[in-house]
């Protein structure tokens, strides 16, 4: 049941991404509408899958790699759709949807086996900490997509060679605002993720902070984004520099998510 739902969700995401790609080339509005509805459908299917998984596992499904990445894709989808509600950024979907599909593919190739939690991890803080931290990643990923779009558009404007992106991407101002808005949501979530993690660590291991690689790297990520926001508010950092910082920050966040687990190990590695 759960597996079938997951496969369906993945298929829907792939279809939506394909539609967004076709829209990017053709710029026909009907196709965008179709793509958007498929994405909303995928998001709903995904939600159902998460609920089913919760009952299958008997605990919040955020414990193994498959679950974490799948939840990441889910946050990205709903983060994007919720932004869409308020800001209309042209062709943003064509950049976000491939990222969602990539995450879903990564989730597909990870072990789906349900893990019995060791007693130390059984806590109400597990769903709170993990979901907040991953949702933060979702919004940081949106800022990352916005940053890439900004750099593409700026490149054409500076070089004065008007190709694929000049007409399709929104104005630099809109992209810079997007970056700002995504971080305005993502950064507080990231902060909250670190704080809840620290409280949970106190409960589980008896210390708020023990400098394991994951903690260290999430702190590095936090400082990168804090620096960007600080500079934006004080001296008005914006545009290219802010876009590059959003990309670097997101790379650090991704390293925290994967690099640490696979390269450095430590207490935070998924139990699987």
């Amino acid at each position: 049941m759960g597996y079938l739902l997951f496969q369906l969700t993945l298929l829907a995401y792939i279809l939506s991404t394909a539609a967004y790609m076709v829209y990017f080339w053709s710029q026909r509005k009907e196709i965008r509408t179709v793509a958007r509805w498929i994405l909303i459908g995928s998001g709903l299917l995904h939600t159902v899958y998460l609920v089913v998984r919760y009952f299958e596992a008997g605990h919040t499904p955020l414990t193994n790699h498959h679950e974490a990445v799948s939840f990441f894709a889910w946050s990205l989808t709903w983060g994007y759709l919720s932004f869409h509600w308020r800001y209309n950024v042209r062709n943003f979907g064509s950049f976000v949807s491939p990222l969602i599909t990539i995450l879903m593919l990564i989730a597909t190739f990870s072990s789906r086996q349900i893990i019995q939690l060791p007693p130390a991890l059984k806590s109400a803080w597990l769903p709170v900490h993990a979901s907040i931290a991953i949702m933060a990643n979702g919004f940081l990923a949106l800022a990352f997509c916005g940053g890439i779009m900004y750099l593409l558009q700026e490149r054409e404007l500076k070089k004065k060679r008007f190709g694929l992106f000049y007409t399709r991407l929104p104005s630099l101002d809109a992209l810079d605002n997007l970056n700002n808005h995504c971080l305005a949501v993502g950064f507080p979530l990231l902060t909250l993720g670190i704080i809840t993690g620290s409280i949970w660590a106190k409960q589980a291991w008896g210390a708020y902070w023990q400098w394991d690689p994951k903690e260290t790297w999430s702190l590095i990520t936090w400082f990168l984004y804090a620096a960007l926001l600080h500079q934006r508010f004080t001296v008005g950092w914006r545009g290219r520099r802010a876009a590059i910082m959003a990309i670097i920050g997101f790379s650090a966040a991704m390293f925290t998510l994967w690099g640490v687990t696979y390269l450095l190990g430590g207490a935070h590695s998924y139990v699987g």
Partner: peptide, 9 residues
């Protein structure tokens, strides 16, 4: 047109 691509509004 260019101004709009830079400033939006």
């Amino acid at each position: 047109e260019l101004a709009k691509k830079i400033f939006g509004n």
